[in-house]
Amino acid sequence: MPPIVRTLLTRGVPLLALYLVVLGLIGAGIIDAYWMATLALICVNIVLAVSLNLITGFTGQFSLGHAGFMAIGAYATAIISNAVAGPAGFLGGLLAGGVLAALVGFLIGLPTLRLRGDYLAIATLGMAEIIRVVFVNLDSVTNGAAGLTVTQNMDWNWFFVLTVGSVILIRNYLRSRQGRDAIAVREDEIAAESIGVDTTRAKVMSFTIGAFFGGLGGGMYASYFYFIKPDLFGFLKSIDILVIVVLGGLGSLSGSIIAAILLALISTLLQGFTEIRMILYALLLVVIMIFRPEGLMGSRELSLNVFSRLGRRRPALATAQAAPGASEAQGKGDER
């Protein structure tokens, strides 16, 4: 079986099944507006958590400003899709939001990522705060603190495409040479530098890509929940996303996905009790860090490959995995 066919079978079929099942449930009315909102929140949180995991979990850079990127994406999508009707405005808005967020991430990341230590956390926190204040004060464009109504463009089709697409792109990035550089930086920055990894470049790349998907997540949020205001994207939103990443496991994409689903369900159930929910989140952070700092999944991944392993076990799998690594090392040697 050619690899591409196998990939399609093992990954595509389960995903397609998931898509169709949810579509059917929506059609049958079992997923009503209430659960659809939860589903939308899960998808948005998956995109946000996976992109923050790229920055914090895989590259080891602590960012507290993800809500800021989200705000940029949300407002860009809102303004563009309100101005241009139809899918062109909506998709253009999502893209513009992602690109703008990436640009801001790049501008913030370039100077601060050179620094060692926790400065990025504070700089990103400050950045998110500045973005919020700017949106509050730009009355003519953003309608200030009162907020903005957005054309509702998202449905399950778009959620599925954008969420799965984001996860696949980030996963593939992590398996590329740049992604492995990023992981090397997390493991030991000095060692990575000494074997020739351009650490600043690796960090800025991860941060910019993470910012892009943060912006995309914000755009998805705005287009489904159709009302945004600057206060939605405050410090606590950044913490919400961080809790998902930490619970799922710093360095595990599937962990982030599982945690996003778990926490969305918990917060739907605890909707009326904001304070209890926050106390729970806070305790969760402290307890996880003390007793299980690697989170639910650690850096392990739960892959859709399980479907192929269920079918047959072949040694070919092992060699297929080893081969790209070897050729990659070869490639590196040639270039330097």
């Binding site: 913490i239 930490v246 926050m278 806070a282 305790l283 402290v286 860090m289």
Partner: peptide
């Protein structure tokens, strides 16, 4: 967490901060 990564301690600090705020709230 004396011997953990700095990120772990920082996340704990945020957790403690939220805990104080919302318990007080």
């Amino acid at each position: 967490l004396r011997n953990s990564t700095r990120i772990a301690v920082l996340i704990t600090a945020i957790g403690v901060s939220l805990l104080l705020e919302y318990v007080m709230l």
